[in-house]
């Protein structure tokens, strides 16, 4: 069970959080301008890397806020936690 450091509440057990998948996926500005393939890329295609993965977490049983984590998918070590406002670029 991971120990996740919520930027607002501090380190808490994984059971307090829910997982939100890959981070940095921006919703297209004008979906109707996209081809089916471009839309499908946004909708379905994920990196699923072996190693560093930037991903979303929600402190769903706590402050209910979303934030990002940089987690190694092999060792499960979390190298960085980031808030979305300062990293939304």
């Amino acid at each position: 069970m991971l120990l996740i450091k919520c930027p607002w509440c501090g380190a808490r057990a994984e059971t307090e959080f829910s997982y939100g998948g890959e981070a940095d996926i921006k919703r297209p500005e004008a979906p109707d301008k996209l081809s089916d393939k471009e839309w499908a890329d946004y909708l379905f295609m994920r990196k699923n890397p072996r190693g560093t993965h930037r991903e979303l977490w929600n402190h769903s049983q706590g402050c209910r806020r979303w934030f990002g984590a940089e987690r190694n998918t092999v060792t499960y070590q979390i190298a960085d936690i980031f808030t979305l406002s300062e990293d939304s670029g």
Binding site: S18, R27, L84
Partner: peptide, 13 residues
């Protein structure tokens, strides 16, 4: 509620 919060916090802060 989580779904709404997800959009509000991550996509349209």
């Amino acid at each position: 509620l989580s779904w709404l919060e997800l959009w509000l916090q991550t996509e349209w802060p």
